[in-house]
Amino acid sequence: MQFYTDMENQTLREDILLLEGLKVSSQFFIPTFILTLLIYIFIIVSNISLVILILSSRNLHQPMYLLLCNLSINDVVGATVIIPRLLRDLLLSNSERYIHYTNCVIQAFGVHLNAGASHTVLMIMAFDRYVAICNPLRYSTIMTNRMVVKLSVAAWTVAFVMVAILLGLSIRLSRCRSVIFNPLCDNASLFKLSCDSVLINQIYGLGYTVVLLGSSICSMTLTYLKIAVVCVRSKNKALNSKALQTCATHLTVYIILLGSGFIIVILHRFPQLSDHRKVVAIQRTVVLPALNVVIYGLQIKEIKQRIIALFHCSKVAQKK
């Protein structure tokens, strides 16, 4: 009986990991906690409100806005997987930031799914813009509701399968360490817990990054080059103005996502810059989802008009 109890205790100890967490000095602890909490609340409320606004407004039932719902849902899921845990760890001392191995795997899956889906969703949104601007006469026949559903499912499925393989290769490894040198769990942190050979993990991880970023960059470059050619050849100022507005919004979000991703990948290669990498990773997780909804909500004319109309209606109702 004692043997089985010892075995269970040993297994339990092996499944409990220690997170390094964020290094925040006492004088910045309260401002950091409050700011992060407010940003999280803003991400949840604004993104969910944007989805409800799009789904409840008939004039916004267009492919571009329906595809945008994917981005908002992805931001909500990504922020929820990461930020509450981050806030909890801020309240604990360094020696108390424990996480169960299963929860760590779930968080790592959420982190990578969020990053992967961000790229795949932005790629299908770029395809939508390409059809709308380069082939406007056939837009309604190509971008049907069925096509929107197919593109959305494809974006999530590709990201899900690629991340499942990525994490599956790390889960198979035995563990000889129990400290995550990171404020949050990710694939690199998981396979670094093992003393086994991680060559396969590194090869697939590199391949995963090259395929995801490569296909993303190539599709965006080709799409926007073709859009630019159409806009240059076209003398329709209204078309060019609308194309510039919607494409600038989309491209801004993509450049921020790509830039932060490249910085994290590069900093992973320099262990001495680990603190800088952690800060960038947290900023990408916390700030980018908040920026997305601000950029789209304020730059897309139809959404901005709908938001203004809702505020106007609420003020009129209050006066009555």
Results as ranks from 00 to 15, higher is better:
Leu184Ile: 14
Tyr130Pro: 02
His119Gly: 08
Tyr40Glu: 04
Ile308Tyr: 07
Met143Ala: 03
Ile73Trp: 02
Ile282Asn: 01
Leu193Lys: 05
Met7Leu: 14
Thr144Val: 11
Leu91Thr: 11
Thr102Lys: 15
Leu251Met: 08
Leu22Cys: 13
Val51Phe: 00
Ser189Leu: 03
Ile171Asn: 06
His250Val: 05
Met123Ala: 06
Ser178Gly: 10
Met7Asn: 13
Asn187Lys: 03
Leu50Ala: 06
Thr141Phe: 10
Leu55Trp: 05
Leu86Cys: 03
Asn103Gly: 10
Asn201Gln: 11
Ser274Asn: 12
Ala154Met: 12
Ile255Cys: 12
Asn135Phe: 07
Thr32Arg: 01
Asn182Gln: 14
Ala115Trp: 05
Leu173Ile: 14
Leu173Tyr: 04
Leu206Cys: 13
Asn187Arg: 04
Phe29Tyr: 14
Gly207His: 05
Ile41Glu: 15
Ser274Thr: 04
Ile54Tyr: 00
Phe29Ile: 09
Val232Phe: 13
Ala290Asn: 02
Gln202Thr: 08
Leu166Cys: 05
Ile256Ala: 07
Gly207Ile: 01
Ile39Leu: 11
Arg58Met: 09
Ala108Val: 05
Phe160Gln: 04
Ala164His: 06
Ile307Pro: 00
Leu258Cys: 14
Ser178Trp: 05
Arg13Ile: 13
Gly78Lys: 01
Thr5Tyr: 11
Phe127Ala: 13
Ser170Ile: 10
Ala108Thr: 06
Thr249Cys: 15
Ala238Gly: 09
Ser49Gln: 05
Asn9Leu: 11
Leu67Ala: 01
Ile282Thr: 06
Ile124Thr: 13
Arg146Glu: 13
Asp6Gln: 12
Leu151Ala: 10
Gly21Arg: 01
Ala164Cys: 09
Asp128Ala: 08
Asp128Ser: 11
His312Asn: 11
Ala228Ser: 13
Ile99Val: 14
Ile165Ala: 06
Phe42Ser: 08
Ala117Met: 06
Glu96Phe: 06
Ile43Met: 03
Lys301Tyr: 13
Leu213His: 06
Gln2Lys: 14
His276Tyr: 10
Ile171Phe: 10
